[in-house]
Amino acid sequence: MSKEVSVVSISKWFGAVTVLLLVAAIGSYVAARSALEPFDDDARALAPGEFVLLTDGKVHYAWHPARGDGAAPQVTVLVHGFSTPSYVWAGLLAPLAEANHRVLVYDNFGRGFSDRPHVDNNANLFDRQLLELLESQNINEPVNVVGYSMGGAIATYFTARHPEKVRRLGLIAPAGFPVNSGAVEPWLSAPILGDWLMAVLGRGILLEIMSTSENQGRAVPDIAKKYEVQMRFEGYLRSLLSTMRNFPMGGMEEEYQRVGEAKVPVLAIWGDGDAVVPPTNADLIAEVTPQAKFVSIEGGTHAITYSEPEQVSAALVDFFGTPFAHAQFPASQ
């Protein structure tokens, strides 16, 4: 009899503990969500640049004028990566402008000061965003497109689908082949658990990562402070989680191959110390995009866009200035 009582007591104890843990988990989730500010016109007022309304929401963008010698400038569009918005390009703007590039930067949906729509953050979303943004700016000629990290995958996807719109494709540590996503990604991908982890712990984890020495760079010396601003508002962490679940970060071999078949000129720049997107992925790109050229930056990390802006911008300026005969492309697919 005492043994039965003991089993019942233990069962009740475990049940009570489980209920308490569930209440605590729900409470922490609600508290984390409640602490977020609404992303509205007051939030947008903090942003530099301008806004345009596209199909999926308002997009924050800015033009940086060319400072060339009077010749017609090239239009160059810069596409940032997974979590760090358009200020990441700070170190490249002046060199590109001096080389007579008219530069368009913007925040991907879910990042910076662009809207955070309640849709799957997949490749089609970001492709549509870039296509509609160019249309809204009355850009009808082929442009240079530069993508950094996940932005490289977006730029590649865009070029594969709309090769007639891309003059040249610049890639900086581009995603699209296997990347080092970290040990926590499988947990974040899990329904319910992933939502709780991102809402309750995501802010702290991301800020800790952004504060590491590997993510520092002289072009954006206050990057952790800038990075934190977008996290104040509802939708940022949700958008990152949706991207992790829906964007083919390591699965774009077909798109790279289509770029190769379209013969769009490609330059890929890597830091040889990149621990996020392995520099050995350059070999995989070369196999399916044979026209691609490669530049390796000695000692560079995944942060080369803003930690080594002189070398990155010099490689891009040289690449964009090289004469070539652009191929004739079919209509967008």
Rank of each mutant, 00 (worst) to 15 (best):
M1K: 06
M1R: 10
M1S: 14
K3W: 11
E4D: 12
V8R: 12
S9C: 12
S11G: 14
F14E: 06
A16T: 14
T18C: 15
V19D: 06
A24S: 12
A25M: 13
G27D: 08
Y29W: 12
R33N: 14
R33I: 07
E37L: 15
F39A: 10
A45N: 12
P48V: 10
L54S: 12
D56L: 02
H60T: 07
H60I: 08
H64L: 04
P65Y: 00
R67W: 00
D69F: 02
A71V: 08
P73N: 10
V77Q: 11
G91M: 05
L93G: 09
L96V: 12
A97H: 09
N100Y: 06
H101M: 04
R102D: 13
V105P: 03
N108P: 00
R111S: 13
S114M: 07
R116T: 13
H118S: 14
N122G: 14
L125Y: 01
E135Y: 06
N138E: 15
N138Q: 15
N140S: 13
P142K: 08
P142H: 04
P142I: 07
V143K: 08
N144W: 00
Y148R: 02
T156Q: 09
A160I: 09
A160L: 08
R161I: 12
R161V: 13
H162D: 11
H162W: 00
V166Y: 00
V166E: 05
R167S: 13
G170Y: 06
L171D: 04
F177N: 05
S181W: 00
E185P: 00
P186Q: 07
S189H: 10
L193Y: 10
G194E: 01
L197C: 00
M198A: 12
G204W: 03
I205S: 10
L206G: 02
L206A: 12
I209N: 09
S211E: 06
G217W: 00
K225F: 08
Y227A: 06
M231Y: 03
R232Q: 13
F233T: 05
E234H: 10
L241W: 03
F247R: 06
G251P: 01
E253C: 03
E254W: 01
R258P: 01
V259D: 04
P265V: 05
L267P: 03
A268I: 07
A268S: 13
A275D: 10
V276W: 00
V277H: 01
P279S: 04
D283N: 11
D283R: 09
A286H: 05
E287D: 11
V288Y: 01
A292Q: 03
V295G: 04
E298R: 10
G299Y: 02
G300I: 10
G300Q: 09
T301K: 05
H302A: 09
T305P: 11
S307R: 06
E308A: 15
P309R: 04
E310F: 06
V312M: 07
F320D: 03
F320Y: 15
G321Y: 01
F324Y: 14
F329M: 14
Q333V: 15
